[in-house]
Amino acid sequence: MNTTRYVLVFVLALTAIVAVLLTSLREATKVQAQLNEEIFEKRAILKAVQDHLGENVEVDNLSDDEVLKIFNGSVEQKVLDMDGSEIDGMAAEDVDMAKEKKKPEEERVLPLFIYSPEGSEDNFYIVSVRGNGLWDEIWGNIAFESDLNTITGATFDHKGETPGLGAEIKDNPTFAKNFKGTKIYKDGAYVSVEVKKGGAQDETHQVDGISGATVTADGVSEMLYRGIKYYEPYFEKARSK
């Protein structure tokens, strides 16, 4: 049996050594890891407007530098408050959706990315939404055409959905592709887009669900309904301009 003193000294020394080692490793890799994360998120945003990036441009095949180049050159960033007014002096990429989700609704800010392809008059509006899946949070970027009604692309991601089931919202390219062409208004009223178990009947407002992932799919429907509604005040203003 060891003395209490030895046990304490041993444990404290071990913890201190481990803490120093892990902190140094974290510090050494931090800059690159943060850059990786930033590019990862920007890639997801650009992926929502994949169809408008140009001939034969695949977001997945772009190098990190090319992603940053498109982002800095053709994407305008805005931050909105819940009344749809722009907030000056903030960049949309600095908005942390996870933190915003924890705030009371009226205090949140909304990131908005506007992609304008070179040599084109079109604007594509990319909004960010965040909600809950089965196990943990899910989020996505939804791109709208200039009419602010028709969805032209979407990307989804998740923290811990089941691989092969709920995780399909990200892994299965068909799921996100089905959103293209759907509309969030029906006869002038906001209805959002629903993920429909058993297959979409109304293809303008519904997309096919994923077998075995009902809760995640319902989470996506709920996230879209609520998340896009937040942007409605801004959409109204932008449309009346």
Binding site: V18, L21, L22, L25, R26, T29, Q32, A33, N36, E37, I39, F40
Partner: peptide
């Protein structure tokens, strides 16, 4: 600690 090393390495190499 080793699992944290794996996590940090992956973050650095392949996000």
């Amino acid at each position: 600690s080793l699992v944290t090393v794996v996590e940090l390495t992956l973050q650095f190499l392949n996000y």
